[in-house]
């Protein structure tokens, strides 16, 4: 069963027809040719498809496209204009916070979301004082980035990359 929806992806508006079963991830990858968000598990278990969905980091493999008609999506490719890099991306490069690169766009989007959540003062599982301030400590970043598996295991470089980008804001 098909439905017509509109999406705004990386600043560009699209009108497209999707199957009611189509996820946002497949809509981007297979209909719109935007393969920046990756499919690693397709079940919300790896984080490779993380994008900013209406401003919040989200897994779009578990989001039906038809349920997000009118959504605003920013992928890692839309974080900065062509030829430039977002501070998180720059930090990932400098810290060598990836190897194969497949989980990386999701890590980058997740990190952008993390920095925003920290700015809002959102606590995490490792925040000692739930009512206090949140710092960009190793443990805070590592916990918040734990929704993004990296099989190459660049974790020890991802944390300083996020901290670097956070400090550079």
């Amino acid at each position: 069963m098909d439905a017509e929806i509109s999406l705004r992806v990386d600043g560009e508006s699209h009108r497209l027809t999707v199957d009611t079963r189509t996820t946002l991830l497949d809509a981007l990858r297979e209909r719109l040719g935007n393969t920046s968000p990756k499919k690693g598990c397709d079940h919300g278990q790896c984080g490779a498809c993380t994008v900013l969905l209406d401003g919040r980091r989200s897994l779009i493999c578990l989001a039906l496209a038809v349920a997000h008609d009118g959504a605003e999506i920013t992928t890692a490719d839309g974080l900065a204009p062509a030829g430039e890099l977002h501070p998180v991306q720059q930090a990932f490069l400098e810290q060598d916070a990836f190897q194969c690169g497949y989980c990386t766009p999701g890590q980058v989007c997740s990190a952008v979301g993390v920095l925003d959540e920290v700015d809002r003062g959102w606590p995490s599982h490792v925040t000692e004082d739930l009512t206090g301030d949140v710092e960009l400590s190793h443990d805070e970043v590592a916990e918040r980035m734990s929704g993004n598996l990296c099989r190459c295991a660049a974790y020890v470089n991802i944390v300083p990359a996020v901290q670097q980008a956070g400090g550079a804001r």
Binding site: K38, L79, Q89, L93, T104
Partner: peptide
């Protein structure tokens, strides 16, 4: 290949 990888391109 870093720039392409951090952008997802």
């Amino acid at each position: 290949d870093g720039e392409q990888k951090v952008r997802g391109t």
